[in-house]
Design a binder for these strands. Structure first.
Length: 271
DNA sequence: AAATGAACCTGTTTGC
DNA sequence: TGCAAACAGGTTCATT
């Protein structure tokens, strides 16, 4: 489910517990995820050097250069536990690490997927080769976003959710960013003034940073790596609030469908 | 090229 | 109350 903040919070939670530990063993469920389970023999007994993130993918970087990429799909989440803890509901992968630590991957909808890449190869895979800049890095600049928007006549929300433009912005944070910037989600990207794109750029970064800061907001499926709920008191301004009054102006938040996804916005604040 | 719809899954919420 | 439809954070593929 996770959008960038939830994946980043997962990374920050797992990294200090796993870095330096060796992957000793693993178990896969009999049910497949989105793609077949990879062969992991190349990293058996190898220590985890770093846990990184690119877009909504977690990247387990091992000492021998091999990289395990992991996408959480719509409903994936990790639990940390001990070696012989009983299986959790919808547990599909278990990784056992040196020191008796066990990482369980649970995913009711099974849209998640993992893959193992030899040294240097992950960036060339189609999943990664076309990805745009990270929204919180400097390559994602105001000028860059203005440039990409000027070239697109499609709705701005669609452009924000296009991973070739910028990664990590999913349905929730696209809606929230557009609300903060006062931009109607269906407005043609190329018909938004440069000043307003600049405001949107700031809104995207602020919304994502705040969500990371509160621990990754999420609707219902995301769980913290220690098993406690990741559903924070973080309140969305518009997402999921159709029919409720806008906190800013009191008009009723509206829901429309774009590209088959629900879009929430305030018809008075967003133009 | 770009816009739509369907597909992959299960669980929860909504509406009759 | 029960049941069925709608809906859910993502990505990819096929069809207009």
């Amino acid at each position: 489910m996770p959008e960038l903040p939830e994946v980043e919070v997962t990374r920050r939670g797992l990294a200090p517990r796993l870095q330096g530990r060796r992957l000793e063993d693993w178990r896969f469920s009999t049910l497949h995820l989105r793609h077949p389970y990879p062969e992991l023999d190349a990293i058996r007994g190898v220590a985890l050097q770093r846990l990184e993130r690119r877009a909504k993918y977690l990247l387990f970087m091992f000492d021998n250069g091999w990289v395990l990429s992991w996408h959480l799909g719509m409903s994936g989440h990790f639990h940390l536990g001990k070696l012989n803890d009983p299986s959790l509901r919808h547990e599909h992968v278990r990784l056992n690490w040196s020191g008796g630590i066990s990482v369980r991957y649970c995913d009711p909808r099974r849209f998640g997927y993992l893959a193992l890449f030899p040294p240097g190869e992950w960036r060339r895979h189609p999943w990664f080769a076309q990805l745009g800049p990270e929204p919180l890095e400097t390559r994602f600049s105001v000028a860059y976003l203005q440039d990409r928007c000027a070239a697109r006549k499609s709705a701005i929300k669609q452009v924000l959710m296009d991973a070739r433009v910028v990664v990590g912005v999913g349905n929730i944070y696209a809606c929230e960013s557009l609300f903060r910037a006062g931009i109607h989600p269906a407005r043609a990207a190329r018909r938004i003034a440069g000043r307003r794109i600049a405001r949107l750029h700031g809104a995207i970064r602020d919304v994502l940073r705040e969500a990371i800061a509160v621990g990754g907001s999420s609707i219902r499926d995301f769980l913290h790596i220690d098993g406690s709920s990741g559903y924070f008191a973080h309140r969305f301004a518009v997402y999921g609030r159709a029919g409720a009054p806008c906190h800013r102006c009191g008009h009723l938040v509206r829901r429309i469908v774009q590209q088959g996804r629900g879009t929430f916005y305030c018809p008075a604040c967003q133009r």
